[in-house]
Design a protein around this nucleic acid. Structure first.
Length: 422
RNA sequence: GGAGGCGUCGCCUAGUCUGGUCUAUGGCGCCCGCCUGCUAAGCGGGUUUGGGGCUACAACCCCAUCGAGGGUUCAAAUCCCUCCGCCUCCGCCA
């Protein structure tokens, strides 16, 4: 949720943000209107309520007939107070409903437009030239099956489409990747967490996943709980309704968790292999910081993400995601997309978002400021996910189907190469 | 799953039975000041959070806030209902 005060003081900035996102900017005036109605209703309610309260003291002091007379007089006031209260509450509900529909105000420099309007900030490394090497690359699933690392058909047998098993060296490789990421996060000062992956509707909504992403979320109806699609949800909820002390610097957390996504509306897309699946592992970074530190923290998250991709020997590009593709909470988002040889395309491996105070406002996470309290900023970023395996297998394959393990992962896998089985 | 107890403004705590003088008591901690070679002690004052009004974004005034949400009432921390959390005991269990 954006700050109503910012909207009052600088409505044009919010309108411009809405336009850049390709959203309706008329909602801004609708909010202002509801806000005015709420505030005038609030004044009316408060002054009459004050009158009623002072009357109550007279009633308490009075006796006998005098008391009866006062009671009769104030009864009408009480009824009127109730009406005024209902009216101002109604206006507030309308105001908040509209306010919640507005996405975060984008940071200056974010490209205008939709999914295809991103700006490439940098291309790192060059895609491997298999033609020059004289062999046709196998795709990650063919390799995975050849190496006894991925088993899609048994995943489908047990759980349906878009489920899979990682077997033997595949399971080992994924866990190696996660451990590398967790060690790096720890070395960078992140507090490591194990988090719930089932959360309440309040937490899910607070993190911002029940709006645009509502169809993407698994819901357990019997218990009214949601399976999270990222540990960002639990990490964002961790400090909900708290007042933090950030005087010693940002609070930074990392967690590996299983992530669950329905992938509704993506029928027929990425149906082969583990590019797009219902369940996967991910190591996430999450930062609570002062609003003025958010952009610096965002750069740091991007730096750590890039460090992983660099050291894993992947070719990738960094993009500045366009306003229309940010989602509600993010004010800016950088994606790192790795080159997938058999697709001849860059595909998202990591994503880091600066949510400024948007997420914190919904979750009511504040900090102690010089006078009073104020909202903190939250940021998140991916350090590793199961999808990395796609780029790793394809990029580091050899003509005979074996796959070289990047140096940095070897201490974790315990082997240097995956070799074809049987 | 069953029975009981508890939830008060950082922490502890009074108030709940018997609704109004609660503008929520006291202690600890913390902040400001006085006093004082320094520190401590002592003394005085302040110290929930959110919102609104008026404004210099001050001061001041008002409203809400006693786990959350409803209800009864002229009036609710206090009475009633629902929910949540914690504790104790019993039952069940990978």
């Amino acid at each position: 949720m954006i700050d109503i005060r910012q909207l009052r003081e600088d409505p044009e900035r919010v309108r411009a943000s809405q336009r850049a996102r390709g959203e309706d900017d008329g909602v801004v005036d609708a909010v202002l209107d509801a806000d005015r109605r709420h505030r005038s209703g609030l004044s009316q309610f408060e002054s009459l309520r004050a009158e009623q309260k002072s009357f109550g003291k007279k009633v308490a002091a009075a006796k006998g007939e005098e008391k009866q007379a006062l009671l009769a007089e104030v009864k009408e006031t009480a009824a009127r107070v109730k009406e005024l209260e209902a009216a101002k509450d109604e206006a507030a509900v309308e105001r908040d409903r509209l306010l919640r529909s507005i996405g975060n105000v984008i940071i200056e420099g974010v490209p205008t437009g939709g999914e295809d309007d991103f700006v490439t900030l940098e291309e790192v490394g060059s895609p491997r030239d298999f033609a020059a090497e004289g062999f046709e690359p196998r795709d990650h699933l063919e390799l995975g099956e050849l190496l006894g690392a991925i088993d899609m058909s048994r995943g489908a047998k047990v759980s349906g489409s878009r489920f899979y098993y990682l077997t033997g060296p595949g399971a080992r490789l994924e866990l190696a990747l996660m451990n590398l990421a967790l060690d790096r996060a720890r070395d960078a000062g992140f507090v490591q967490m194990q988090v719930p992956t089932l959360v309440t509707p309040e937490t899910m909504a607070g993190a911002g996943f029940l709006d645009a992403h509502a169809d993407e979320v698994y819901r357990l109806e019997a218990d009214d709980l949601f399976l999270t699609g990222t540990s960002e949800v639990a990490l964002a909820g961790f400090h909900a309704d708290e007042i933090l002390d950030l005087s010693a610097g940002p609070r930074r957390y990392t967690a590996m968790s299983t992530c669950y996504r329905r992938e509704a509306g993506s029928y027929g897309k990425d149906t082969r292999g583990i590019i797009r699946v219902h369940q996967f592992q991910k190591v996430e970074m999450f930062v609570y910081c002062r609003p003025e530190d958010a952009e610096t923290q965002h750069e740091s998250l991007l730096k750590w993400e890039r460090g992983m991709l660099d050291d894993l020997g992947l070719a990738y590009r960094v993009i500045d995601v366009a306003a229309g593709d940010l989602g509600g909470p993010a004010a800016r988002k950088f994606d790192c997309e790795a080159w997938i040889p058999t697709q001849g395309a860059y595909r998202e491996l990591t994503s880091t978002s600066n949510c400024t105070t948007y997420q914190a406002r919904r979750l009511n996470t504040r900090e102690r400021a010089e006078s009073g309290t104020r909202m903190v900023a939250t940021l998140n970023g991916t350090l590793a996910t199961t999808r990395f395996l796609v780029a790793l297998l394809e990029t580091h394959q050899q003509a005979d189907g074996s796959v070289t393990v990047p140096e940095v992962l070897r201490p974790y896998t315990g082997f240097d190469v995956l070799t074809p089985v049987g």
